[in-house]
Amino acid sequence: MSRPVVFIHGLWIHSSAWQPWQELFELQGYRTAAPGWPGDGDTVAATRANPDAVAGYGVDAITEAYAAVLAGYDEKPIVIGHSFGGLIAQKLLDRGLAAAAVAFSPAPIKGVRALPFSLLRTSFPVLSRPGNKQRAVSLTEKQFAYSFGNALPAAESAELYERFTIPGPGRPLFEVSSANFTRDAPSAVDTASANRGPLLMVAAGRDHTVPAVVVRAAHRLYAGSAARTDITCHPDRGHSGVFDHGWRELADEALSWVRSLDRSGAPSA
Rank of each mutant, 00 (worst) to 15 (best):
V59D: 03
V59R: 08
D60E: 13
D60S: 13
A61N: 02
A61S: 06
I62R: 13
E64D: 13
E64H: 09
Y66D: 07
A68C: 10
V69T: 12
V69D: 09
L70E: 12
A71Y: 13
G72F: 06
G72A: 12
Y73H: 12
E75I: 13
E75G: 12
E75P: 09
V79G: 10
I80P: 02
H82P: 11
H82K: 07
H82R: 09
S83W: 08
F84K: 15
G85N: 06
G85Q: 02
L87V: 06
L87D: 01
L87I: 05
I88F: 07
I88M: 05
I88D: 02
I88N: 07
A89S: 14
A89R: 07
Q90I: 11
L92N: 01
L92C: 05
L92K: 01
L92Q: 00
L92S: 04
L93Q: 02
D94W: 03
D94A: 11
R95Q: 15
G96I: 10
G96P: 04
G96L: 00
L97C: 03
L97R: 11
L97N: 01
A99K: 00
A100R: 00
A100G: 02
A100Y: 03
A101K: 01
V102R: 05
V102E: 02
V102I: 14
V102Y: 01
A103K: 08
F104Y: 14
F104A: 12
F104H: 13
S105C: 13
S105D: 12
P106E: 01
A107C: 03
A107H: 07
I109H: 02
K110M: 12
G111K: 06
R113S: 11
R113C: 01
R113M: 07
A114P: 07
L115I: 13
P116S: 00
F117D: 09
S118L: 02
S118A: 11
S118I: 08
L119R: 15
R121Q: 15
R121V: 15
T122K: 05
T122P: 02
F124Y: 15
F124S: 15
F124L: 15
V126Q: 08
V126R: 10
V126E: 03
L127P: 04
L127A: 05
L127S: 06
L127R: 04
P130F: 14
G131K: 05
N132C: 08
N132E: 10
N132F: 08
N132D: 13
K133R: 15
K133G: 12
Q134H: 09
A136S: 11
A136P: 03
V137E: 04
V137K: 11
V137R: 04
S138V: 01
L139H: 02
T140H: 00
T140W: 01
E141T: 10
F144P: 00
F144T: 04
F144H: 00
A145W: 03
A145K: 12
Y146G: 09
S147K: 11
S147T: 14
G149S: 07
G149C: 02
N150Q: 07
A151M: 05
A151G: 04
L152S: 05
